[in-house]
Amino acid sequence: MSLQVLIFSLLACVSILGALGVVIARNPVHSAIGLVLSFLNVAAIYLIARAEFLAVVQVIVYAGAVIVLVVFVTMLVHPDDLPEFHGRRPLRIVTGLVLGVALLLEVAAAVLTRSLSGAPGPWTDEAVAAVGGNTQALGQTLYSDYMLAIQLTALLLLAATIGAIVLARPEAVSERVAAARRTLTISLAHPRGLDQPERPPALPRPSDGQVKPAGSGRPIVLARSANEFTEQPAWGEWRTP
């Protein structure tokens, strides 16, 4: 057994232990710690596979951003008592375990009885070193062969950002507008904005303010211009219902 295999096995064991911790721990924060442990070891394994850039990205994005976010939300959701509901569904646990073991056996059988067959690619260690390292090689591949995919991914991230902001917004403006509509009638008092070509007979001109009670006690808001209530709202205030 070479040193490489030894190190790999060590890291893999810790990684699997961390993963088991995720599933077994009753406290979600402990689960998250297990997950980080697993991810860090996987990052180290990436280093063995000469994928330095991915190793660092794994740490920065997964461990540093995604899991931190999960922990963050875990704490925001119930800061005082994090719920511990593991199980109380014995049938489901048994089914899950049986399925897991079955799949593991199947995959292990498939992996162990097979050997990898495929033409080796051009990126040998020397070739990678020739362009300056893993990062440079990856960059060259990414921004030539996978240009469209990169752009689509960027678009996806943008959409996700917007989606997350929309989801996490506390209160929508449209609800406030709808609430105002339920209690107010908006009327246009501009002569050119009316249906009839004649001027309307003496419209009430509230001198003391804009709101004047109408017959049924419903207040009428008199617009001073046709655009007053149809103007686009300022940026960021608009959301379709």
Partner: peptide, 16 residues
């Protein structure tokens, strides 16, 4: 999720 997992196990088994 259980159904998905079951399907996966069955499919892989059938393939094997």
């Amino acid at each position: 999720a259980l159904a998905i997992a079951l399907g996966t196990v069955l499919l892989v088994g059938i393939y094997l």
